[in-house]
Simulated scan of single mutants.
Amino acid sequence: MEAPVKSLTATYETLLLDEPRPGVVVIILNRPARSNAMTNMMFAELERAAEAFDGEDDCRVVILTGAGTAFCAGYDLADADELAGLGALGMLDQQERAARALLAVRSLRVPVIAAVNGAAAGGGLSLALAADIRIASPTARFNAAFVRIGLSAGDLGTSWLLTRLIGPAHASEICFTGRLVAAHEAARLGLVNSVSDELLDDAITLAGQIVRNSPGGVQLSKRALQANLEVSSYAAALELENRGQALLTRGADMAEALSAFKENRPAVFTGR
């Protein structure tokens, strides 16, 4: 897999793209002067980028991070004065525009790693939660800032994802107070997987470990993990898993893995 991911050639106003190693795409939120706060342009571009990379077989892992010293400060409050005058349907349209962007990120068929390099507040917390894995720098901090501006923590998936990550009691306290959660507390609670002084390097290393595995196996693992957060029973989870395993045995990668094991060599996966 030596060819670069084709969608890296696209241009964006609020995002930067990089491919530090084959198959690993880094999406950088690029409004550092505004702490990478979200705008409607950023929502549209996140959705467009996620959909573009989702269609590329050479894209195997996406890393999401922020330019400068912040990850994402949530919705840009410079634009917030307009919200009160939108009316109910106008505000619903605004919410759905933002939700589509985060859903596109979460729905990527490949793993998404959030490399949280600073503040992740409000919608920035929601964006970090939409990733499959979160790594934080020591300066990262998180808060569900919604209640501080007269809104609900039931926003952009936070109430659903945060509760499942850290449990209802911790989620309730963080959401009701709007307090800051520092990086090491976030790790203790399970909000992030780890805290790293070499954040992006460690995220790229982790992505490289994922890329070495079967593309189909990783993608169907992600599908099973996400889908089984929502099913109502163990039996339903088993049914989904059975179908995924049966499907993967029809491809070339399982046979390649068995041959490599017998021949004591690294497997060469193709995703076919």
Results as ranks from 00 to 15, higher is better:
residue 136 A to C: 09
residue 95 Q to C: 13
residue 166 I to N: 03
residue 112 V to W: 02
residue 78 A to E: 09
residue 126 S to C: 13
residue 165 L to F: 10
residue 40 N to Q: 07
residue 236 A to Q: 15
residue 195 V to C: 11
residue 70 A to T: 12
residue 104 A to C: 04
residue 87 G to S: 09
residue 260 A to M: 00
residue 215 P to Q: 02
residue 180 L to K: 03
residue 244 G to F: 10
residue 215 P to R: 05
residue 146 F to K: 00
residue 34 R to K: 07
residue 113 I to R: 07
residue 189 L to V: 08
residue 129 L to H: 05
residue 208 G to I: 11
residue 239 E to G: 03
residue 191 L to G: 13
residue 196 S to F: 04
residue 227 A to I: 00
residue 137 S to M: 03
residue 265 R to H: 03
residue 31 R to S: 15
residue 136 A to W: 02
residue 131 A to V: 01
residue 199 L to M: 13
residue 163 T to V: 06
residue 181 V to A: 10
residue 260 A to D: 09
residue 119 A to H: 03
residue 252 A to S: 14
residue 89 L to G: 05
residue 188 R to Q: 13
residue 179 R to D: 09
residue 88 A to T: 06
residue 196 S to P: 11
residue 197 D to G: 12
residue 226 Q to E: 13
residue 116 V to E: 05
residue 152 S to E: 04
residue 135 I to L: 15
residue 89 L to W: 02
residue 6 K to A: 10
residue 109 R to L: 01
residue 113 I to W: 03
residue 72 C to F: 00
residue 108 L to W: 00
residue 110 V to I: 13
residue 101 A to R: 02
residue 87 G to Y: 04
residue 67 A to G: 04
residue 187 A to D: 01
residue 82 E to R: 04
residue 130 A to S: 15
residue 219 Q to I: 00
residue 49 A to T: 06
residue 6 K to F: 03
residue 210 I to R: 07
residue 153 A to K: 06
residue 146 F to N: 07
residue 187 A to M: 13
residue 235 A to I: 05
residue 203 A to S: 15
residue 38 M to C: 01
residue 88 A to L: 04
residue 68 G to K: 00
residue 167 G to K: 10
residue 94 Q to S: 08
residue 214 S to Y: 10
residue 198 E to A: 11
residue 86 L to N: 03
residue 140 A to L: 02
residue 109 R to S: 12
residue 66 G to T: 06
residue 96 E to V: 01
residue 247 L to V: 05
residue 205 T to E: 05
residue 67 A to V: 01
